[in-house]
C-alpha cells in the first residue's frame, strides 16, 4: 500500500497528541524530543500494522524514522 502523509499526520495528532501545527516534513521528531520512546513504539507498531511485515531491527534508525519525510521515504521504499 502507499503510505500517505495524511495517515502519518493523523496518527501523530490523534493517537500521540502531537501538536503538528509546527511540524514540517524535515522536523526532527525523536532526537529532539517531539515524541518520546513510548510514542515511537506506538508509531512503529502503527506503521507495521498498516503497511505490512515487521520492520527489521537494523532499519529502526534515525535515518529512517526521525522525521515525517524520512518515515514516508522509508515506508514507501519498502513497499516498492
Amino acid at each position: 500500500m502507499n503510505f500517505q502523509r495524511n495517515d502519518l499526520i493523523g496518527f501523530l495528532k490523534g493517537a500521540l497528541n502531537v501538536d503538528v501545527s509546527d511540524v514540517e516534513d524535515d522536523t526532527l521528531l525523536f532526537s529532539t524530543g517531539v515524541i518520546d520512546s513510548f510514542s515511537m513504539i506506538e508509531l512503529i507498531t502503527y506503521i507495521e500494522s498498516t503497511t505490512g511485515p515487521s520492520i527489521p531491527p537494523g532499519d529502526i534508525t534515525l535515518e529512517n524514522f526521525d522525521s515525517i519525510g524520512r518515515i514516508l521515504s522509508y515506508v514507501n521504499s519498502r513497499a516498492a
Binding site: F30, S31, S37, M40, I41, T45, E48, S54, P57, L62
Partner: peptide, 16 residues
C-alpha cells in the same frame, strides 16, 4: 506476540 514485538522495538530504540 504483540507485547514481545513492542519490547523488541523498545530495545531497538534504545540504541538510537
Amino acid at each position: 506476540a504483540q507485547k514481545r514485538r513492542r519490547y523488541e522495538i523498545g530495545l531497538a530504540l534504545q540504541k538510537l
